Simulated assay, not measured.
Amino acid sequence: MSRSKIWTDIDLDAEGKICGYFRLPLAAHDKSGDDAGYSYEPIPVVTVRNGEGPRVLLMAGNHGNEYEGQILLMKLIRRLEPKDIRGQIIFLPAANAPAVRADARISPLDDGNLNRHFPGDPNGSPTAMIAHLIECEILPRVEYAFDFHSGSSSMEYTPCGAIARSDDPDRFNHSLSYLKAFGMPTSMIIENSTGGDGAMIGACRRAGVFHMSTELGGGSTVSLDNLTLAERGLERLLRHVGVLSGPNTAEPEPETRIVHRVPSRDYVYSDSTQTGLFEPLVKLGEAVADGQIVGRIHYTNAPWKAQEPVYSRSAGIVMCRRVPARTRLGDCVFALARDWQEPPSATERPAEDNYGGNHV
């Protein structure tokens, strides 16, 4: 496979702590602009290395307007020194740097969703070039990749870690231990995830790299509670894989509720033919029943009109909710999950027709 055309001045294999940039060339894509011919897009990268040991990629900004993960990694970058680890941690806190700069889910350069562009293309669009860099230049250097997401601007999630279901019991149990170490209130198993070949999880599968992702809130804001949970969880996780050294100050692993998503057809949608304001009647983490009224839609253009109830079409646990109150026909207002149990056989696993949902 061709080498990446993204270049850098830093040595990813060097000892110590090194901060710099990957440089994404823009001129070849006619994306440098009228006032910046032959320019590049800087993608921040940090490597912290101390001898032999586990090798870990920590990544955020896969979608540019998901903030908790970006802050989480920036704080750790400033705090961590080589003496604190054994092995190596590579940080990509703004992986889709054009989207981060634009404060958008997707890249303004090519409307590219990085988490759908793997394995990428060294001669492709800017987003495809970034995906190729990650899959072909970075993942071969690591054993673990942890990718931090939130709910973007349209959804808010209950904080959770997520892994894919694997047919290899040993590999799956190994990954399951990450969820328990990360220790969010809820953890999610993604069933039948072969549809995610274009996502980071597909790249890790091809590279033989262990993977975990997250949903840490969202709604165009930063939750102090969720960020605190994630900071504590990340310290436990890095100790669990053996890359952190020194005194263990992490809190013990809390209990986590393990769930799997229901198929997308069983999410809760607005079926109203008119746009209105959505009033939620349930909260994140609550259980709902099939047929339960979980919200109402109010019509500002006809305030005397009766509110319209929104019904759950399935039993489950509310994992995320729509944030903008303005809602129209087809908008997902709640995504649901159910408690996960080990399926007896591959033929009896639940169908998963919406790999990755909003992010993972």
Score class of each variant (00 low, 15 high):
2 S>I: 07
6 I>F: 08
13 D>G: 12
15 E>T: 11
22 F>A: 05
22 F>W: 12
24 L>E: 11
26 L>M: 02
27 A>D: 05
31 K>H: 02
46 V>S: 07
50 N>H: 14
52 E>Q: 13
63 H>W: 15
67 Y>Q: 03
93 P>H: 08
94 A>W: 11
95 A>E: 07
99 A>P: 08
110 D>V: 00
112 G>D: 09
114 L>A: 09
127 T>P: 01
129 M>I: 10
130 I>C: 11
130 I>D: 10
133 L>T: 05
135 E>A: 10
143 E>T: 11
143 E>P: 12
144 Y>E: 00
149 H>F: 12
153 S>A: 14
159 P>N: 00
163 I>A: 08
164 A>C: 15
167 D>V: 12
167 D>P: 04
169 P>K: 02
170 D>Q: 08
172 F>M: 11
177 S>Q: 10
178 Y>C: 03
180 K>N: 08
182 F>W: 02
188 M>N: 12
191 E>M: 06
198 G>R: 13
201 I>A: 15
201 I>N: 14
202 G>M: 11
208 G>S: 02
209 V>W: 09
210 F>S: 15
212 M>G: 05
216 L>H: 07
217 G>N: 03
217 G>I: 00
226 N>I: 03
226 N>W: 04
226 N>Y: 03
229 L>P: 04
234 L>W: 01
237 L>R: 07
241 V>E: 01
244 L>S: 05
255 E>W: 10
262 V>S: 11
266 D>Q: 13
272 S>I: 09
273 T>V: 14
280 P>T: 10
283 K>Q: 13
288 V>W: 02
293 I>T: 13
294 V>N: 02
295 G>S: 07
301 N>V: 12
303 P>V: 06
303 P>H: 02
307 Q>G: 14
308 E>D: 01
310 V>N: 04
313 R>L: 05
314 S>Y: 06
316 G>Y: 01
327 T>S: 01
333 V>M: 04
335 A>S: 13
337 A>M: 01
342 E>A: 08
347 T>R: 15
357 G>D: 12
357 G>L: 06
358 N>R: 14
